[in-house]
Nucleic acid binder design. Structure first.
Lengths: 339, 339
DNA sequence: GTGAAAGCGCTAACAT
DNA sequence: ATGTTAGCGCTTTCAC
């Protein structure tokens, strides 16, 4: 910056003003300084800027698993909003390792980022507290650790299950099956509870069969699919809710290969709108988890917390409403207007 | 740090030494200072550190599209290696927008990162030159712009096609089909050329049919699949190479639904080992694009360029060898040892 | 082994 | 409107 000042024949402070408060400098000086900046290819040092200014324009996003499309959506949502507000989002991936998550948080802490968006892998209050004690705001995404002493953005997973079941019921299905992983996973538990509620509300005319699976991956889905096919047609469900899209996709393919028509014989749907399951020829009905909104809302809350006086900030929890995305696997080809 | 020094009853410089060169400080002092650091929850300011030290321990990774699993792999490869070397990798996603890519590069430039890994969306020499003129090393990943004035890590796409065709030929298939997008895409062009070479080498006993597609997405694959099924069995290929996994997966599902057995009637394989196509019950043979190695090698080259004296550095191109990943869709279920 | 002091490249308050 | 200057929190000589 000194070089720029000398070359433009002005003082250092003037260059700074041109950069930060151009309205305080005469137009011709602004022009001259800017020309020199271009000429020299000057890029101002963000570190020094943040250090001297005592603030930062970048926020850190830490996600558990960047290969899951929900987290990719979260990142994109946050970035889009950040763009509008002149902030920068840096992504750190934890690759499902808790120690990596901690390392990322420490890195962000050391970088004196303005704030942190954290989509944690499990209860991370200890790490969060540490960072926050250093005065760095943290907003938690997609994980309910029951701590309302922090801002969070969550999706109503009970409603996810409820909407899914309701969707199938509204299509006239009466023998539902809920294919889920183990119940100790928070989202699985909640979605199952929601499905039960919808079935109960339907009175006695709808039944719900619950089939647990070992994992949430395709092989488990295929296994369940084969088990269903092994039963006499009258004994099969006519509507299947898979707790993840990957599970649902695998089930569809088994049905496909066995001549069971989807959705006419059996309607199938997933619950987490995961692009990793978009490879199919039968597009999959699912429930939108609103990753984009989650990222965007999270950043909004974070900005709010950053700019509010530290003591006066009121933490809030935003509960996002999931929404059915109806596709061919439940409503059939003709009803799908656009992919 | 001043607080730490005062609380520990030592000078500022000593705290710095404890942090950076503990061997230069007496053990008891080290211990005392460290205790105070823990007690105060002190985290040193990376910005100030980099500013004062004139270097940085973080490197920037800019990818075109974080929703493509190849780029996710690249990121993970780079991060794994970075962990071993005490560096930090910050990911910036460009969401397929060229202006975002430029913004990311400028951000990294302003942050004075040690170096940049760039997986660009198209010829980006202009942007690269700008950054490099500021003395910041850049390594290009997965894109061959013909510029050997930079370090690059590429995958031999011609070999991808060659290996794919060879794999099918070695399984006794003689009527191959290459299902590709438009030939103006560099990878498509190269893979097709490789497939041709393998077929030529096989002499007259193997034929290669080339079927272009509008896009590289599932719908195009399904379309081709239906076209193939529409032909009399003797007229159909017995081995299909889809230029992307998504295409391949869609084709398999069409075959599946029509009672065409994969791989016994027709073997099908993809070419880019994309996890977005892993949802199937028939696991897909593909060609490993070595994203992890790409990230790792890229970072290795980058570190080399960073530490080498600026003038003495010799740019190099690492050409990664793709490898067949044989799965059920070509070799059948029994031959697949593990997923 | 430890301490003192000069910067790193900026911002922001103040002086002109 | 422009120039001057004191830090921001550290690293790094160089003395002690």
């Amino acid at each position: 910056m000194t070089d720029v000042a000398r070359r433009a024949g002005v003082a250092l402070g003037t260059v700074s003003n041109v950069l930060n408060y151009p309205e305080k400098v005469s137009p011709e000086t602004v022009q001259r300084v800017r020309d020199v900046i271009d000429e020299l290819g000057f890029v101002r040092n963000t570190n020094a800027r943040d250090l001297a200014g005592g603030r930062s324009r970048t926020i850190g996003l830490s996600v558990i698993d960047i290969s899951n499309s929900l987290f990719v959506d979260i990142a994109r949502g946050a970035q889009n909003f950040a763009e509008e507000t002149g902030l920068n989002v840096m992504i750190a991936n934890s690759d499902n390792k808790l120690e990596s998550q901690d390392a990322s948080l420490s890195f962000f802490d050391g970088s004196r980022v303005a704030g942190i968006l954290l989509a944690p892998m499990q209860d991370s209050r200890a790490s969060i507290d540490r960072v926050r004690r250093h005065g760095r705001p943290v907003v938690v995404l997609n994980y309910d650790d029951g701590d309302d002493d922090t801002c969070r953005v969550l999706v109503d997973n009970e409603l996810v299950g409820y909407l899914a079941a309701q969707h199938l019921i509204s299509l006239g299905r009466t023998r539902l099956a809920f294919i889920g992983g183990r119940d100790n996973l928070q989202p699985v538990h909640l979605r199952r509870a929601g499905a039960r509620r919808a079935v109960e509300e339907a009175g006695g005319r709808v039944t719900l069969e619950e089939i647990p699976t070992e994992t949430l991956d395709p092989p488990s889905g295929a296994e369940v699919g084969r088990a269903i096919i092994g039963r006499p047609p009258a004994d099969r469900p006519d509507g299947v809710i898979a707790v993840t899209d990957l599970l649902g996709m695998a089930i569809i393919q088994v049905f496909n290969g066995a001549g069971v028509a989807v959705p006419s014989d059996i309607a199938v749907m997933g619950c987490d709108h995961n692009s990793a399951a978009w490879g199919g020829t039968i597009s999959l009905t699912s429930v939108q988890m609103r990753g984009l909104e989650m990222g965007r809302e999270g950043l909004r809350l974070l900005i709010d917390e950053i700019s509010t006086s530290r003591d006066e900030h009121v933490h809030q929890t935003v509960m996002l409403e999931p929404a059915i995305v109806a596709r061919e696997s439940t409503v059939g080809r003709s009803a799908v207007v656009q992919r």
